[in-house]
């Protein structure tokens, strides 16, 4: 199986291409996780392992943690669940609530090569299958037409500004995927909130 790129390394790669991701850090204990708390904002804890590609399905994601007590419990439970998946790491992230979720992805078609995908993200990906696909590298025209192709375009890009923002993001993600040795890419979800976006989950396969 294609190896999963380490989360922090993946986030670093995104940053290099000007794609921002949500504040996150590996934590080695419940105490470290608690120190990740900032003000009143809740956090998320995730167990990450090569052996578990669907984190939320395997109960490896703990959402909306606000207190040290909640964090301690969640951390202990994650450690228990992740035991068979060793080696694993625990990642703490700021939790973004509300916002609209989209996916930008990449895959390699056996006939044509690297392709980039844009769609309605999060839990809706599989249900509505509302996505647009293009061969890499894409042009600005392609990026705009991908967005226009989506049935959900009014949801994920309600105005011109967000449309331009997403098109720009898509171009950068496509360039990153084209120039890298990645075979699969899921930036899902990317959450649009407060006039900006952040990649919340990053899954890159070499």
């Amino acid at each position: 199986m294609a190896p999963l790129v380490d989360y922090e390394k993946a986030a670093g790669l995104l940053k290099k291409y000007g794609i921002s991701s949500v504040r996150s850090s590996y934590v080695g204990s419940a105490e470290e996780a608690s120190s990740f708390l900032k003000g009143d904002d809740p956090i998320v804890l995730k167990a990450i392992s090569q052996k578990a590609l669907h984190k939320s399905k395997s109960g490896l994601v703990k959402l909306n943690l606000r207190s040290e007590e909640e964090i301690r419990k969640a951390y202990a439970d994650l450690v228990k669940r992740a035991k068979p998946l060793r080696p694993y790491k625990i990642l703490a992230q700021s939790m973004l609530s509300g916002g609209l979720e989209m996916i930008i992805g990449g895959s390699v078609d056996p006939q044509f090569g690297k392709m980039v995908l844009l769609g309605l993200g999060g839990i809706y990906v599989e249900t509505f299958k509302d996505f647009a696909l293009r061969l890499c590298p894409i042009s600005t025209y392609d990026a705009a037409s991908m967005l226009r192709q989506l049935r959900s375009r009014k949801i994920i890009a309600p105005d011109n500004r967000s449309e331009n923002m997403i098109a720009g993001l898509l171009l950068r993600a496509s360039r990153m995927f084209t120039e890298s040795n990645l075979s699969e890419m899921d930036l899902n979800p990317i959450i649009l909130h407060d006039g900006r976006y952040d990649a919340v989950d990053i899954r890159l396969l070499e």
Binding site: L53, S107, M115, L117, G119, L133, M185, D186, R203, L205
Partner: peptide, 14 residues
């Protein structure tokens, strides 16, 4: 396929 993307982007879609 290991990702959402690869499972959506089949040959016909490509």
């Amino acid at each position: 396929a290991h990702s959402h993307t690869a499972s959506l982007a089949g040959s016909a879609q490509a």
